[in-house]
Design a protein around this nucleic acid. Structure first.
Length: 572
RNA sequence: CGGGGCGUGGCGCAGUUUGGCUAGCGCGCCUGCCUUGGGAGCAGGAGGCCGGAGGUUCAAAUCCUCUCGCCCCGACCA
């Protein structure tokens, strides 16, 4: 490719729309442009990178007997009604109607379609296991698209679906995908950590997310410093510490005091001069419309995913002021567990608090010296708090540490959630009709590219790993006006092409600085510079983008050196 | 969805508070000269109904109303 013809408009300055490094560099290097919030057009260089990642994914999916298919983006509402997700998906789903008024959506994911596809064709256990995957655009009307490819409303995703006869073979599919994912990210030059995760709206029980640690990550990942445990913070388990004999003594008498206007833990602890950890936060929720109370320690945050899961409810939301008044006889901010008549669920940590400060269920009042059993009872204790760095590991005696992570992939065991709902069954060896046991496995292709940049850049631009670089080599003659340089560059370019090496010739009549800056910004792993002086000595210069290391070599050594380098793989 | 901010040539911005004459600057772009190992220099030039609609006014980028788009924080989310 000739640089003079390449449609890759580079920018000296960063467009104001970009905040994080990968987004800035993808715009500056001319890889993509925004067309609407959360939607991007890929330009030639950007597309080449995307295609390379896709190709790696294909190879690894095929290696575990995945078969590639391509399913429609536009999906009929009926299928989603069958699974019950037409309602559940809510505003995040792009919906549309055809001329007859029939309802469709732009697929946010493809469980329904693939289940429908398989149920009509798979009849026998002999056809299993079946692993189908596609690389396809997905559409989610995110409330807040951001950070370029990190969270788009249109994005490219590889999704595989496995169909098995039982949970044992699902297990094999699951771990096959898990290990394929490790290889995929490794080949893309990424260190992606599998962590235990929540399955969210997709459903299912066992699931891992593959996380690339980066400051710009939207998730908090917790790692045990001592053992292998790693989990998304929203999923990380809390630990129930047994109450020690004699831990809680000297119960003081109850006392209700005026706390005018102090409705948050911060205000109360400041007003009364107590520690937040000696307060109990009482949150009133509506679980499928019914009010319940949830208690967490004052310095803890409640994890709604855990509460929702524990209650097994479909909808969970913080109660409105009116409901709170009805339940507590007080304004929001003064609720407490004493005398409440609704079910009351408490985090494990509540067991340990003696002489707690709680809302008095009376406007502008709090109650001091509240104690479990003596003053209030709970319906159940469970794990409700948002786990934080510094908390104990649920698996060993270690301590959890936190890091930001970008979720580049996730693997789920779905079980029979969709096959049950959509009657996707097969006949087993006993001739019995049995639901297919499913798994699903996603990789965000664009997000993976963004994550690679987040981990591979310097002040001059992107540093592509060889495996996904848009081109491997750029040939830069210092001056195109110099006949000798121009023709030497041209012949090297042709020679590299003949060797099947992906190469760009910067044939522009620009000053060398401009070409060097663009080469660094775009991030070609290898640059060959051809200058007048070295050329007279029969030499050219190879520069490795990652290390900025330079090497002057005889002209005839250039191609073999590059070939060796490419063959030896991905160490740059 | 709540809070905040921004829309002025391709990109980055000034001008808006206190309305006033041909709307500026840097980068990029075009032409010519010159230059060629890290985003050169000189000269000349093209390009903007100031996001859109309505209103106030002798006069609106600037004031008012509505509207659209984009970004950030939060809530939420495979």
């Amino acid at each position: 490719m000739l640089m003079s013809q390449l449609y890759s408009p580079t920018l000296r300055e960063t467009p104001s729309e970009a905040e994080i490094i990968s987004h800035k560099l993808m715009l500056r290097a001319g890889l993509m442009r925004r067309s609407a919030a959360g939607m991007y057009a890929f330009l030639p260089l950007g597309l080449r990178v995307i295609r390379k990642v896709e190709q790696i994914i294909r190879e690894e999916m095929n290696a575990i007997d995945g078969q590639e298919v391509l399913m429609p983006i536009i999906q009929p509402a009926e299928l989603w009604e069958e699974s019950g997700r037409w309602k559940d998906y809510g505003d995040e789903m792009f919906r549309l109607k055809d001329r007859q008024g029939r309802q469709f959506c732009l697929g946010p994911t493809h469980e329904e379609i693939v289940t429908a596809l398989v149920r009509s064709e798979v009849r026998s256990y002999r056809q299993l296991p079946l692993r189908l995957y596609q690389i396809q655009n997905k559409y989610r009307d995110e409330r807040r698209p951001r950070f370029g490819l990190m969270r788009g409303r249109e994005f490219i995703m590889k999704d595989m679906y496995s169909f098995d006869r039982d949970h044992e073979t699902l297990d094999q599919s699951y771990w096959a995908a898990y290990h394929a994912y490790k290889r995929i990210f490794e080949r893309c030059g990424l260190e992606a950590h599998p962590v235990e995760a929540d399955s969210g709206a997709i459903g299912g029980d066992v699931t891992h997310e593959f996380m690339v640690l980066a400051e710009s990550g939207e998730d908090l990942v917790l790692f045990c410093e001592a053992c292998e445990y790693a989990a998304n913070a929203e999923r990380a388990e809390g630990v129930r510490v047994p109450v020690q004999e004699g831990e809680k003594t000297a119960f003081e008498p109850l006392e209700t005091v005026a706390t005018p206007g102090a409705s948050t833990i911060d205000q109360i602890s400041a007003f009364l001069g107590v520690e937040p950890k000696d307060c109990i936060k009482t949150l009133i929720y509506l679980a499928d419309g019914k009010p319940i109370a949830a208690l967490v320690r004052g310095d803890h945050e409640l994890n709604e995913i855990k509460l929702k899961k524990f209650l097994q409810c479909v909808e969970l939301e913080l109660a409105d002021d009116e409901t709170i008044f009805k339940v507590t006889k007080a304004r929001t901010g003064f609720a407490g567990p004493v005398g409440l008549s609704i079910p009351c669920y408490a985090d494990y940590a509540i067991e340990h608090i003696a002489n707690a400060v709680v809302g008095a269920n009376k406007d502008d009042h709090h109650t001091l010296n509240v104690n479990l059993d003596r003053d209030f009872q709970v319906t159940a204790f469970t794990d409700l708090k948002e786990t934080q760095p510094g908390d104990p590991c649920p698996r060993c005696s270690g301590t959890l540490q936190g890091a930001r992570g970008v979720e580049v992939g996730q693997v789920f065991k779905l079980g029979t959630k969709y096959s049950d709902a959509m009657s996707a069954t097969f006949l087993n060896e006993d001739g019995k009709e049995t639901p297919l046991v499913m798994g699903c496995y996603g990789i965000g292709v664009g997000r993976t590219v963004a994550a690679v940049i987040e981990k591979n850049y310097d002040e001059d631009g992107i540093i592509w790993p060889l495996s996904i670089a848009p081109y491997q080599v750029v040939v830069v003659p210092v001056s195109m006006k110099d006949e000798a340089q121009a023709s030497a560059a041209q012949s090297l370019y042709e020679e590299l092409q003949a060797e099947g090496i992906e190469v760009v010739l910067d044939d522009r009549d620009e000053r060398p600085g401009v070409k060097f800056k663009d080469a660094d910004l775009i991030g070609f792993p290898i640059r060959v510079t051809i200058g007048a002086k070295s050329l007279e000595q029969g030499q050219m210069e190879i520069i490795w983008r990652r290390t900025k290391e330079k090497q002057s070599l005889p002209i005839e050594a250039i191609v073999p050196t590059i070939k060796n380098f490419l063959r030896d793989g991905d160490q740059i």
